[in-house]
Design a protein around this nucleic acid. Structure first.
Lengths: 113, 113
DNA sequence: CAGATACTTAAGCAATTACTTAAGTGATGG
DNA sequence: CCATCACTTAAGTAATTGCTTAAGTATCTG
């Protein structure tokens, strides 16, 4: 999968409050599908569909042991999304700094005239 | 607007490659609607619709001067999304560290027996 | 081995998204 | 002033999303 497609799926996955609740739960440790479903006001199939989107995005890994599916967070995918945002944000802030320097310098030149 | 609703809109906004292209462009400095549209293979109204989603998410501010709409990035919104991911990721990593410590300690206790 | 548990599969439906084209509006430049 | 430019508004459409219910399929448990 291309990195861009991954970002599509990752941000899409994080755009839903139920899925963020699931990620939040998993950040405190592994959980079964039923445990992920517990705080959510929806049917189990709906939860599984959300879970599949999180898996497709690479945010969650799951493994079925007996009749229970155990889910864990994959933080490497999360840091990819984090980095995308961080890069654009810092890029913008660096530009502002340079602009500030320029204005500062221009002011000094004005003062010398 | 609630913070959760903001996160919905922000992640939703970032989930589209055209909108990320627009954010990327704006991270290098302000741009007009036409300038944002230039690299995108779609009609201008489509670009404006994307822009409206970025605005609704708080990621972009715009101001119309004469007949040109000038768009700039709002990085405070971006850092909110960044922090949401970062918190869950570090939470998970801290948990892994504690688990590592526990296993290490258990191993030592085994050795003492 | 019967019944409960933990999902899983399938089908359907209403709302939203990502476009499109067509027809505006309101600066600006010659 | 009249055409051009930079959007803007409106309306329509196909695909996707976020659910639902109903009916499975494997585990376990007593």
């Amino acid at each position: 999968m291309t990195p861009a497609a991954n970002l599509d799926l990752m941000f899409q996955a994080l755009a839903d409050p139920s899925r963020r609740t699931m990620v939040d739960r998993l950040s405190r440790g592994p959980a079964s599908v039923s445990q992920l479903a517990e705080p959510l006001a929806m049917s189990l199939p709906a939860v599984v569909q959300h879970l599949q989107m999180l898996e497709a995005a690479g945010l969650v890994k799951t493994e079925k042991i007996g009749r229970v599916r155990s889910c864990t967070l994959d933080t490497s995918a999360m840091s990819q999304a984090e980095r995308w945002i961080n890069y654009r944000r810092t890029q913008w802030e660096r530009r502002l700094d340079r602009l500030g320097d320029f204005l500062e310098q221009t002011k000094d030149e004005d003062a010398l005239e």
